[in-house]
Design a protein around this nucleic acid. Sequence first.
DNA 1: ATTCTTATTGTGATATAATCTCATTAAGGA
DNA 2: TCCTTAATGAGATTATATCACAATAAGAAT
Lengths: 128, 128
Amino acid sequence: MIRRKTIQCDLVLDAVNRLKDHATAEEIYEEIAKEHPSIGRGTVYRNLGRLSEEGKIRKVEVPGGPDRYDHICIEHYHVKCQKCGRVFDVDMPYMPNLEKNIKDGHGFVFTGHSIMFTGICPGCRKKY
Amino acid sequence: MIRRKTIQCDLVLDAVNRLKDHATAEEIYEEIAKEHPSIGRGTVYRNLGRLSEEGKIRKVEVPGGPDRYDHICIEHYHVKCQKCGRVFDVDMPYMPNLEKNIKDGHGFVFTGHSIMFTGICPGCRKKY
DNA sequence: ATTCTTATTGTGATATAATCTCATTAAGGA
DNA sequence: TCCTTAATGAGATTATATCACAATAAGAAT
């Protein structure tokens, strides 16, 4: 199945790159809809999925929150602010061999890991 | 606000302890409903929340899946099977000082972390 | 440039997880 | 036994995400 180039797909990619800090699908939809109100939510979701598969953006699944989309595609870790729910990058080297520390896999085949730190972001720290 | 003892709350705690392996709220509801069909889903959710707050069970937020509830309350790590979505314990020491490896917190106050490994469980490995 | 095929879109329905509302029930103190 | 009010059960509602399908449009063929 040949993948066609569409302006909607470009708009989604542009929005992720522009919004940078781990926008949700809804935020991306609203960003695009400001200029192109006729775009559909389904189209945004679909293209976010496709762009993630193609490796042009990176889906960040957040425990206890909606998925977010990152313009940085190399593996890295994130912090989630427990007050506002926003997600930020963490300045910590990626540990590709973390799975090696597992003593007994009990027959599991390990394929990767994700780390989500929790904390309070500078903005929320002031408020509360 | 005084917390009252109810049979429903006991049923939820018992079900989590009985089901052990990180059941979802729905699974816990169904387990209880087998014997007590009149229990409401809302009640199960409410008591799961309260028991987590009280530290009697532990809520495990799973990226890309429903929350799960663990009868083991000490901090530890989990693997999620990418085929069946089930969650298992991982035999790896907890790293209480992982946050210390963060070079620059950018004003963040870190309060903890969770690690979710991904992989394929023994059961699914056979099937696929 | 025109036609044709079909991938993609926009709309709206549906699924899933979780929370909320509220009248009713029942826990537990008086 | 009565009284107060926390907790329940039923059902509505919210949030996130996916799906179905007729209409549109990308891009190859003519």
